[in-house]
Amino acid sequence: MRLPTLAVLAPLVALAVADKLVVEVICLCSYINGQWYTAYGNYWAIATDGCHGPDQTGVPGLQNYCLDFSRNRGHFYFQNQGKRCLDVVEFTQTSYTPSQTTSRMVWDEVACTW
């Protein structure tokens, strides 16, 4: 029995659509470095508040992305795709001393409502 091509490719496409950005901050300085996770690997990314171009990440095909820390949301565009959105789904903070605190934010892909 032969399966239609779409039935075979559908599970692979589902794996490729989820993207995630993890930001770790030391000393409550500024949100600087992040790791962008895709189905194809993970890449370093600048994770400051505001918009960033393709030169600020190594993610293949990522055109731009914007992070809004005051609203805990963001959006991004890959080549030949519409707007996709991120939301903060996890925030943890660990204090070692009053001057050394580590924060970790996980931004996961969600349906766009903004």
Score class of each variant (00 low, 15 high):
residue 46 I to N: 11
residue 94 T to K: 13
residue 26 I to F: 11
residue 51 C to D: 07
residue 80 N to K: 09
residue 111 A to E: 14
residue 4 P to S: 15
residue 27 C to H: 15
residue 56 Q to G: 06
residue 100 Q to C: 14
residue 42 N to T: 08
residue 55 D to R: 03
residue 104 R to F: 07
residue 81 Q to K: 13
residue 27 C to S: 15
residue 75 H to V: 00
residue 21 L to H: 10
residue 98 P to I: 03
residue 21 L to Y: 08
residue 38 T to Y: 06
residue 37 Y to F: 11
residue 23 V to S: 03
residue 79 Q to I: 07
residue 60 P to L: 02
residue 62 L to E: 00
residue 103 S to Y: 09
residue 39 A to M: 07
residue 77 Y to I: 01
residue 6 L to C: 13
residue 50 G to K: 05
residue 97 T to G: 03
residue 76 F to P: 01
residue 108 D to F: 04
residue 79 Q to Y: 06
residue 49 D to W: 08
residue 97 T to Q: 04
residue 55 D to W: 07
residue 65 Y to D: 02
residue 10 A to Y: 12
residue 66 C to L: 03
residue 14 A to E: 13
residue 59 V to C: 00
residue 71 R to W: 02
residue 25 V to M: 09
residue 8 V to L: 14
residue 23 V to H: 06
residue 14 A to S: 15
residue 110 V to Q: 07
residue 102 T to V: 12
residue 112 C to A: 05
residue 41 G to S: 01
residue 47 A to I: 02
residue 74 G to N: 01
residue 11 P to Q: 11
residue 87 D to M: 09
residue 31 Y to E: 10
residue 35 Q to P: 03
residue 14 A to K: 12
residue 52 H to A: 09
residue 9 L to K: 13
residue 32 I to M: 11
residue 79 Q to L: 08
residue 58 G to P: 03
residue 77 Y to M: 04
residue 49 D to N: 14
residue 108 D to I: 02
residue 103 S to F: 05
residue 18 A to G: 13
residue 81 Q to A: 07
residue 24 E to M: 08
residue 40 Y to R: 06
residue 92 T to G: 05
residue 51 C to M: 12
residue 14 A to T: 14
residue 107 W to D: 01
residue 109 E to C: 08
residue 103 S to W: 08
residue 46 I to F: 10
residue 97 T to K: 03
residue 57 T to F: 00
residue 16 A to V: 13
residue 31 Y to K: 12
residue 83 K to L: 07
residue 99 S to R: 10
residue 62 L to I: 00
residue 76 F to T: 00
residue 107 W to I: 02
residue 38 T to F: 02
residue 78 F to G: 01
residue 84 R to C: 02
residue 14 A to F: 12
residue 60 P to D: 00
residue 34 G to M: 05
residue 105 M to I: 06
residue 101 T to M: 14
residue 37 Y to D: 06
residue 43 Y to R: 03
residue 77 Y to L: 02
residue 27 C to T: 15
residue 36 W to T: 04
residue 22 V to K: 14
residue 85 C to Y: 00
residue 59 V to I: 02
residue 102 T to E: 15
residue 4 P to G: 15
residue 40 Y to L: 12
residue 8 V to I: 14
residue 110 V to D: 03
residue 57 T to D: 00
residue 6 L to H: 14
residue 92 T to E: 07
residue 59 V to Q: 00
residue 51 C to L: 07
residue 12 L to M: 13
residue 26 I to Y: 10
residue 73 R to P: 01
residue 13 V to I: 15
residue 46 I to Y: 10
residue 96 Y to A: 12
residue 4 P to C: 15
residue 11 P to N: 12
residue 34 G to T: 06
residue 23 V to W: 03
residue 51 C to A: 13
residue 5 T to N: 12
residue 57 T to R: 01
residue 23 V to A: 09
residue 106 V to S: 09
residue 62 L to A: 02
residue 53 G to T: 08
residue 71 R to I: 01
residue 27 C to N: 15
residue 64 N to F: 08
residue 28 L to V: 05
residue 24 E to H: 07
residue 67 L to T: 01
residue 69 F to R: 06
residue 107 W to N: 03
residue 38 T to V: 08
residue 35 Q to T: 13
